[in-house]
Design a protein around this nucleic acid. Structure first.
Lengths: 179, 179
DNA sequence: GCCGAAGTTGAGGGAGTTTTCAACTTCGGC
DNA sequence: GCCGAAGTTGAAAACTCCCTCAACTTCGGC
């Protein structure tokens, strides 16, 4: 790829990241192009479909989520680690409307986005296993409860805007999870 | 209002109820008009704005929710009543995509929809008070936890489609609420 | 520095939706 | 049953957004 194309690619990802975060994934592509300072034609050259742009923008966020899970594995207290991961990953979705939508929409099996999503879920497996092994989690806790918790909390955060609302919900669920 | 206009109004509400329920509030107005068997012009005559149509469609659903709260007051066991209301009101949103959107979107203070929403929330006050008085609810339970629970559960139901997912979430929250 | 390949540009065609309105039809009071 | 008010109709204008493409510009290997 020529270096001007590579630069425009980065400009577009940066612009899209900002616009998606505040207004969601539905924004007009021409607004993203304008924000990036390139033409709509260039946007189509770099990202033939909207989903390719979305995937490029959020690949990094999914990795951040996975890194968070890994970092939490190093926290001594398993419960503290579990809580810290949940708060952190919810926060990622709450500060980024687009990311929350990426996490709840289905982009079709085999798509780059679904793969990234799946990898992010897998990255929590060890964390959940460790917390279960510690005996601090209720016996019937499943991996799926993790996804459920994050989805519910992020959804509330999207709608309500007040941080105390989603934090309250998450605390209630944590109470339910405690063995 | 002339009787043909009144009839068309009902046809439109009925059509919109069906279409909103399955596809959400965003559907093209012309599809609603076609479903109702009237012209797009008539739709605009009866409901100058989309929100007026939405308000007319869901006024009844909000009342249903309020009636459910009232009926639950008559259930002998306070906890059973509390659970039954939550399940019922969540189900209303889960079977009706449009209603779920009405409940989570903000239509602006003073709008007919927000008033109806507020009335529905108020209708649960007695139920919550009774459950708290019974001593079965955790001491720090607030009315706002009610809204939080319903919103979270309905959101999960919208995204996941699998009934067991939202039921699991609701059961977890009920565990958290039990004193 | 030349030149062909790679990339950029933005006007314009297309699709879908909203909203208006002038001509036409129906209702209901008399 | 007449007639004016009320209501209906659907074509068309206005929007918004998507996507393409032919003309133009830039890059980078030689």
């Amino acid at each position: 790829m020529r270096k001007d194309a590579a630069r425009n690619r980065e400009l577009l990802i940066e612009a899209a990241k900002t616009v998606f975060a505040t207004r969601g994934l539905h924004v007009a592509l021409d607004e993203i192009a304008r924000t990036a300072g390139v033409s709509i034609g260039t946007l189509y050259n770099r990202f033939p479909t909207r989903n390719e742009l979305v995937a490029a923008v959020y690949a990094e966020t999914f990795e951040r989520s996975a890194r968070l899970a890994k970092r939490c594995l190093e926290v001594a207290d398993p419960w503290e680690a579990f809580v810290r991961y949940l708060r952190g990953t919810c926060e990622l979705q709450i500060v980024d409307r687009g990311y929350a939508q990426v996490c709840s929409r289905d982009f079709g099996a085999g798509s780059a986005i679904e793969s990234a999503k799946h990898a992010a879920i897998a990255s929590t497996e060890q964390l959940v296993a460790r917390t279960k092994d510690s005996g601090l989690l209720r016996a019937d806790f499943e991996l799926r409860d993790m996804a459920l918790t994050i989805l519910a909390t992020a959804s509330v955060g999207q709608v309500s805007g007040a941080r105390e609302d989603w934090e309250r919900l998450l605390n209630l669920l944590l109470d339910a999870f405690r063995a």
